[in-house]
C-alpha cells in the first residue's frame, strides 16, 4: 500500500501576530511557523496503517521556514520518503496550493498513484478553501473530510472510515481507493519521537526538493485588510492572585444565586 501525506506549515498563533505595513498580511519578521496541527494527525494515521498493514509513507510539504525539521521528524517517526515542494511560499492559499500540487505530484516519479492521500482536514489560514477536497477534485478521486479512524481492506480496494458529526456521533463510510481523506483525529495522539532520532534523521538527510509547476486556479479571494478582530464585547478582567480572583468569582456566583 502506498500512502501520501500532505503537510504544511502555518503561523504559530501562540506568538503575538502583527499586521504588516501593507495592512493586508501578517508581519513576517516575528512570525514563527509550526506544522498544521491536523496534518500531524494525518501523518499519525498513515503511520498507524503502516504499522498494521505495511505501507510506504511519503510526506509532501511546501517549502517554508522550519519545514525541514518537520520532514525529518516525520522520517524519525517512520515516514519512508520526504518531498519538499519549492516555489510555493507559505500563505500561497489553498487554491493555488491545490492547483500546483495537482500538476506537480503526478510528475514526481513514484509519488502517485497512491492508495490513500491523507491531509489535515483544515488549517487556520485556509481563507480561500481546503486543500484536500480541492486536490481530490482536481485528481478525480473520492474525498471525505473530518475523518478520525481509517481501516483499509487493500485486497478489496476499499477503506472504512469514521467521520465526526456533532455531539459525539460518528458516521461510518465506505470509500473506494484511491481516495483522499481530510483527517481530523486519530485513535491515538501523534507518537512521540526522541530528539536523538530526529537528529539522526537530519544527519542522514534525504529530503527531495521538487520545484512546483504552476497550476491553474480560480482568481483568489482578495484580502482588502487584515486586523485584530473588533470584539463585540470584552471580558471584565479580574486581577490579583489565584486566591483573590477565585474569591471574586465566588462573589459573582453568590450574587447570581449560583452557590
Amino acid at each position: 500500500m502506498k500512502i501520501l501525506v500532505l503537510m504544511k506549515m502555518v503561523p504559530d498563533i501562540v506568538e503575538e501576530l502583527e499586521v504588516a505595513s501593507d495592512g493586508r498580511s501578517l508581519d513576517q519578521e516575528y512570525l514563527r511557523f509550526i506544522v498544521n496541527e491536523r496534518d500531524e494527525y494525518a501523518l499519525e494515521q498513515a503511520l498507524l496503517l503502516k504499522d498494521g498493514l505495511g505501507a510506504t509513507v511519503t510526506v509532501v510539504a511546501p517549502d517554508a521556514p522550519e519545514v525541514d525539521d518537520v520532514l525529518y521528524t516525520a522520517r524519525a517517526k517512520g515516514a519512508d520518503r520526504l518531498i519538499k515542494v519549492t516555489g510555493l511560499p507559505a500563505g500561497s492559499g489553498a487554491r493555488a496550493t491545490a492547483a500546483a500540487l495537482a500538476v506537480t505530484l503526478p510528475a514526481i516519479e513514484g509519488a502517485l498513484p497512491a492508495d490513500l492521500v491523507l491531509s489535515g482536514c483544515q488549517a487556520i489560514d485556509d481563507l480561500d478553501g481546503f486543500v484536500a477536497p480541492l486536490l481530490a477534485g482536481a485528481l478525480g478521486v473520492p474525498y471525505l473530510g473530518l475523518v478520525s479512524r481509517v481501516s483499509v481492506d487493500a485486497a478489496a480496494g476499499k477503506a472504512q472510515v469514521m467521520k465526526e458529526f456533532a455531539g459525539g456521533v460518528m458516521g461510518r463510510f465506505e470509500v473506494s481507493l484511491p481516495a483522499l481523506l481530510g483527517i481530523q483525529g486519530c485513535e491515538k495522539p501523534p507518537r512521540y519521537v526522541p530528539v536523538a532520532k530526529v537528529r539522526a534523521a537530519i544527519g542522514a538527510g534525504g529530503i527531495e526538493a521538487v520545484e512546483a509547476s504552476a497550476g491553474t486556479a480560480v482568481a483568489p479571494v482578495e484580502v482588502a485588510a487584515l486586523a485584530k478582530p473588533e470584539a463585540a464585547g470584552h471580558a471584565e478582567m479580574l486581577e490579583g492572585s489565584a486566591q483573590d480572583v477565585a474569591e471574586k468569582v465566588a462573589d459573582i456566583l453568590a450574587a447570581r444565586g449560583l452557590l
Binding site: P229, A231, A232, G233, H234, A235, E236, M237, L238, E239, A242, Q243, V245, A246, E247, V249, A250, I252, L253, A254, L259
Partner: peptide, 27 residues
C-alpha cells in the same frame, strides 16, 4: 476574552484549584 463575561490572566490550574476551594468554603 471577547466571548467571556469575566477574564483572568493566570495559570488555569492554579485558578481552578483556588476556585474549588472558595466554592467548597462557601457551600
Amino acid at each position: 476574552f471577547s466571548v467571556a463575561h469575566y477574564g483572568i490572566v493566570e495559570d488555569a490550574t492554579d485558578v481552578l484549584e483556588a476556585l474549588a476551594e472558595a466554592v467548597r468554603k462557601r457551600k
